[in-house]
Amino acid sequence: MSFALDLYVPGRSWLHRCDPRVKLWMMLLGLILAFRWTHPLSQALFVAVLLLTLRFAGVRWRTLGWLWQQMRLLVFFMLLLQPLFSPSGRVLAQIGPLTLSLGGISSAVLLALRVLAMAFLTGGLLFTTDQRALVRAFVRLGLPYTWGLTLSLTLRFLPAIGNLATTVREAQASRGWVTEGNLLHRAREYHPVLIAIIIGALRLSDQLTLALAARGLGYTEQRTTWRELRMRRTDWWVLVLSTLGFAAVWGVSLIFPAL
């Protein structure tokens, strides 16, 4: 399987230990800023600041490199194609109907950097936050417990369904299943595999329903939580400082609307 089921990289940095609710708030502020910057330079500065913040929060270059790997194709295409679609400002070259202009290039760079900023923001949250804590944070922020449970069960059963898919494929292969031929043919070949995977998932849901009921889901309205999230003093400081920082930056951007 070629996907990461959990991006969390355990660590002890200040960002790691920050309450997930504070991190969500910071991410929201960051996203607002990413859409505020309309000049490639300010956006570039923003990306650089994000990158450094993550680095100092103990996220390793390897992890950040992985993120870049995932992003680079999109960034490349945006830089390549976007200038041709939004010509403005000084024209640099004209090839048939296509116009390469300074304004086009600048908007392409801006958009590409914005996408990178968004990726680093989500990365900053997911790389440093345990999934369980994140779900608990959502619940504390008002998500009904059953919805939070749905989310954690989804995350919990990803590997199970992934393994199921592998096992089913192998089992069918050893009964003579081969994939070849054109697309339509292949789609048909996948039929029994998909059916077996889905039946497996449905049976899992049958069993899980019984398991949850047997362990008392919905038994009492006053559900308790073993390890409740607590805002520590530092969490409040981070919350206040990041909000003040956001306000200050926003103020500056009002003075220089071209940024």
Partner: peptide, 8 residues
Amino acid sequence: LEALGVPS
């Protein structure tokens, strides 16, 4: 235990 409402 959480589902039973046992104190945290």
